[in-house]
């Protein structure tokens, strides 16, 4: 019995040793991993209507909110910077003569601020104003009728 126990114990211990060895040196199976780094971010600052904003003040904030760098756009409203790490969202703020635009740059390749179709917003605004004028006219008509009714004895 003793003769059988010794080889089993040796085998068991050597398996444990091998597992122990592999876990310290290289625990992972053959799995491949990737990290990526976006080298440079190119952006363009423009006014609604498409005019590029020349010499707009641009401030770039790191994902933790600290200022990374400050600069100005060129003649075409373009601005580029190289982020150090591309984890989290970088915030870029552009200011020009009282105008201000802000954008968050995440991991998705490109993006921008969008505008609602103009005809919808114009129609909406004019609608409110016509409504305001109409309400005033309606109120005046109602007052005039009440005045007339109170003057004519029934």
């Amino acid at each position: 019995m003793k003769k059988v126990m010794i080889p089993i114990a040796v085998l068991f211990l050597s398996i444990l040793f091998l597992i122990g060895l592999s876990s310290t040196a290289n625990a992972n199976p053959h799995r491949m991993l990737m990290n990526y780094q976006v080298g440079r971010i190119d952006m363009v600052v423009y006014f609604s209507g498409g005019t590029p904003a020349q010499n707009a003040h641009v401030t770039v904030y790191r994902p933790d909110g600290t200022i990374y760098l400050k600069g100005e756009t060129n003649e075409e409203g373009e601005f580029s910077f190289e982020p150090t790490v591309m984890q989290g969202e970088w915030k870029v703020v552009a200011e020009h003569s009282g105008h201000r635009a802000e954008i968050l740059i995440g991991a998705e390749g490109e993006g921008g601020t969008s505008e609602m179709p103009l005809y919808i917003t114009v129609t909406a605004g004019l609608g409110y104003l016509i409504g305001l004028g109409g309400a005033a006219i309606g109120y005046m008509g109602w007052k005039a009728r009440r005045k007339r009714e109170s003057e004519t004895p029934s």
Binding site: F47, S48, G49, T51, A53, Q54, N55, H96, S97, L118, V122, G125, L126, L129, I130, L132
Partner: peptide, 19 residues
């Protein structure tokens, strides 16, 4: 008149560095 002022800002005149 408010309507006129409201849409006036849509008439852009691109001048040099700004709009």
């Amino acid at each position: 008149i408010t309507a006129a002022v409201f849409v006036a800002s849509l008439i852009h005149i691109p001048i040099g560095p700004t709009s």
